[in-house]
Design a protein around this nucleic acid. Structure first.
Length: 288
DNA sequence: GGGCAGGTCTAAG
DNA sequence: CTTAGACCTGCC
């Protein structure tokens, strides 16, 4: 994507401006259910944690302002976080042959697939199973507060980094249960434990194709195809990963028939999934 | 108070 | 290989 970015100072604070980025709308990006740690903290401002930092993003006149950020941090973290090198307009164009998908994509055209930290997405989507978004967010926040590194205090709130596998493993299953994770406590522990002792090596996943990566991640208790696909899409930037949840089952049934061919969505099936998922939930009034 | 929420496990045919 | 039930918890 072609975009211009520059650094500015105001009141002794640095910030980075991304000029008129295409296909980037904060409310859609943080509201579509791919990330659980960002919330509105003002008019057109979203704040939250990623990569061990607290960040605030503001949308003004089509530009994106990143508070307390310099260019080196932008290039180190947020450029890839927002997947800025991907041309989403081009992806949407490639969906134009599919009438329903194209409609969903046009409606959701401000969504980008964030590149989040692999371990965080893995644990977050384990927590998401048979759960609702407000409670998922609360559990993740409690978990981070319990054993994540303290970052800063803002908006009368303390922010903590998402914990490491080691920290979660050391916490133990009982403590995880006490954080109201319910039956997922043993799953979270198993994931953290297997990663801590090297039984699962997340770095290896990057070099696997999506099919192999799914079966690899499914070696973790509580990780099935849906959780694995979400982690691969949002945490390993595998854009062909196609999570099928209750909403997607509904979409596939209504618009594609029972015997749909996943290949028809191509290498960007995961992006298609996110457009369809977001659009479906919006027309069903799930998001405010 | 029963149902439900971005699923997965387990036990049984 | 496919398919019911069960499952923590909190909010409706």
């Amino acid at each position: 994507m072609n975009y211009n970015v520059y650094e500015k100072s105001l009141n002794n604070k640095k910030y980075v401006v991304i000029e008129k980025p295409q296909n980037l709308q904060l409310s859609q990006i943080f509201g579509c259910g791919q990330a659980f740690r960002f919330d509105p903290v003002g008019e057109n401002v979203y704040g939250g944690c990623a990569f061990g930092r607290y960040a605030e993003f503001e949308e003004k006149d089509g530009d994106i302002y990143i508070n307390n950020c310099d260019l080196s941090e932008f290039h180190e973290i947020w450029k890839d976080f927002f997947d800025l090198d991907t041309n989403y307009a081009h992806i949407i164009d490639s969906f134009s042959h599919d009438k329903h998908l194209y409609k969903a994509a046009t409606y959701s055209s401000g969504i980008r697939i964030l590149r989040q930290q692999p371990f965080e997405t893995l644990i977050s989507f384990i927590i998401s199973q048979n759960n609702n978004i407000p409670r998922i967010k609360k559990i993740i926040e409690n978990l981070s507060m319990e054993c994540g590194e303290f970052i800063c205090e803002k908006n009368n709130k303390k922010y903590y980094a998402f914990p490491t596998a080691e920290a979660i493993c050391d916490l133990g299953e009982q403590k995880l249960f006490e954080l109201k994770t319910g039956f997922r406590a043993k799953y979270i522990f198993d994931a953290a434990h297997k990663i801590k002792n090297g039984e699962i090596i997340l770095d290896k996943v990057f070099s696997m194709n999506t099919t192999n990566a799914v079966s690899y991640l499914c070696n973790i208790k509580g990780v099935g195809p849906k959780v694995a696909m979400c982690s691969l899409l949002f945490g390993f930037s595998k854009k062909d990963a196609f999570p099928i949840d209750v909403w997607m089952k509904k979409v596939l049934k209504e618009h594609y028939g029972e015997s749909f061919d996943l290949c028809s969505f191509g290498d960007n099936a995961g992006v298609a999934q996110q457009y369809l998922f977001y659009y479906e939930r919006c027309i069903n009034n799930i998001f405010a």
